[in-house]
């Protein structure tokens, strides 16, 4: 038997590590239930390749922030995140997903 699935939005923000806290502040001010941060290893930004540095400041690292939640919570955040991305290195995408446990989001 297939359990019930629930429609949600998934926000995926790839952003430079020093700006992560600012992105997290935006989510937490909007009472987002939870998110996960993953390290980004390497990539290409259209001009040059980049890869995760080894210095202890992590100033050059990129991270991926993943957040799944209700449309009415996540969509209003987009303008603030857009403003953040005008200043900091990063990209944002959003997609429709389905989750198993509605109450978790």
């Amino acid at each position: 038997m297939i359990p019930d699935l629930h429609d949600k939005l998934r926000l995926e923000l790839i952003i430079e590590s020093p700006a992560l806290r600012r992105a997290e502040d935006i989510l937490s001010e909007a009472n987002v239930h939870g998110w996960t941060v993953l390290p980004a290893i390497s990539g290409f930004d259209g001009r040059r390749r980049w890869s995760r540095g080894t210095d202890i400041s992590t100033a050059t690292d990129m991270v991926v922030l993943i957040c799944v939640g209700d449309e009415n919570i996540l969509l209003p955040l987009l303008s603030k995140l857009h403003t953040l991305l005008k200043r900091h290195i990063g990209v944002l995408d959003i997609m429709k997903v389905q989750v198993l446990r509605d109450a978790e989001f």
Binding site: E16, P18, I56, S57, T58, A59, T60, R87, H88, I89
Partner: peptide
């Protein structure tokens, strides 16, 4: 510097280009 200043610049002057100073 390649530890303290790049991190501070990314916070305070994010519009600056890290590929130049790094």
């Amino acid at each position: 510097s390649y530890i303290a200043v790049p991190a501070a610049m990314r916070l305070a002057l994010p519009q600056s280009d890290p590929s130049v100073y790094l």
